[in-house]
Simulated scan of single mutants.
Amino acid sequence: MADYYQLAVEKRESIGNAANKTLRRNGKIPANYYYKKQDNINLILDSKDLYHALHSGHHVFEVKMNGDIQYVMIKEIQYHPVNESVLHVDLMRVRRDVKMTISVPIHLEGEAIGVSEGGVLSQILTSLDIECLPTDVPEFIPLNVSELEMNSSLSVADITISSNVSIITDEEQVVATIAPPKEEEEPEIEIEEGEEGEEGEEAVEGEEGAEAPAEGGEEKADDRGKAEENAE
Rank of each mutant, 00 (worst) to 15 (best):
residue 3 D to M: 14
residue 7 L to T: 00
residue 9 V to L: 01
residue 11 K to W: 04
residue 13 E to D: 14
residue 14 S to R: 12
residue 15 I to T: 11
residue 15 I to M: 03
residue 16 G to T: 08
residue 16 G to D: 00
residue 16 G to Y: 02
residue 18 A to D: 03
residue 19 A to S: 11
residue 20 N to H: 11
residue 20 N to Q: 04
residue 21 K to Y: 09
residue 22 T to Q: 13
residue 22 T to D: 10
residue 22 T to P: 02
residue 25 R to K: 10
residue 29 I to Q: 02
residue 44 I to D: 08
residue 45 L to G: 05
residue 46 D to L: 02
residue 49 D to G: 08
residue 51 Y to H: 06
residue 51 Y to A: 07
residue 52 H to W: 04
residue 52 H to R: 11
residue 53 A to L: 09
residue 54 L to M: 14
residue 54 L to Q: 05
residue 55 H to V: 06
residue 56 S to G: 07
residue 59 H to Y: 06
residue 62 E to I: 09
residue 62 E to W: 02
residue 64 K to G: 02
residue 65 M to R: 14
residue 67 G to N: 12
residue 67 G to S: 06
residue 68 D to E: 14
residue 71 Y to V: 03
residue 73 M to N: 05
residue 75 K to M: 09
residue 78 Q to E: 07
residue 79 Y to F: 14
residue 80 H to Y: 05
residue 81 P to S: 06
residue 89 V to P: 04
residue 93 R to K: 13
residue 94 V to Y: 02
residue 94 V to S: 05
residue 95 R to A: 10
residue 97 D to R: 07
residue 99 K to Q: 13
residue 99 K to V: 01
residue 99 K to P: 00
residue 101 T to S: 15
residue 102 I to C: 05
residue 102 I to V: 13
residue 105 P to I: 06
residue 107 H to K: 14
residue 109 E to T: 07
residue 109 E to I: 14
residue 111 E to Q: 14
residue 115 V to I: 13
residue 115 V to Y: 10
residue 116 S to T: 15
residue 117 E to V: 01
residue 118 G to Y: 13
residue 119 G to T: 07
residue 127 S to C: 09
residue 128 L to E: 00
residue 130 I to S: 02
residue 131 E to F: 02
residue 131 E to K: 15
residue 132 C to G: 08
residue 138 P to S: 10
residue 142 P to I: 04
residue 143 L to T: 06
residue 144 N to G: 05
residue 144 N to C: 04
residue 146 S to V: 04
residue 153 S to H: 11
residue 155 S to F: 01
residue 155 S to E: 08
residue 157 A to L: 01
residue 162 S to W: 02
residue 163 S to W: 01
residue 163 S to M: 11
residue 165 V to W: 00
residue 165 V to I: 05
residue 166 S to H: 12
residue 170 D to Y: 02
residue 171 E to T: 15
residue 172 E to P: 00
residue 173 Q to E: 07
residue 175 V to C: 04
residue 177 T to K: 12
residue 179 A to P: 00
residue 184 E to S: 15
residue 185 E to N: 02
residue 186 E to I: 15
residue 195 E to S: 11
residue 198 E to P: 03
residue 200 G to R: 13
residue 203 A to M: 10
residue 205 E to F: 10
residue 209 G to E: 10
residue 209 G to A: 12
residue 209 G to Y: 06
residue 211 E to T: 15
residue 211 E to I: 11
residue 217 G to D: 13
residue 217 G to E: 12
residue 220 K to C: 03
residue 221 A to W: 11
residue 221 A to M: 10
residue 222 D to G: 01
residue 223 D to K: 09
residue 228 E to P: 02
residue 232 E to F: 14
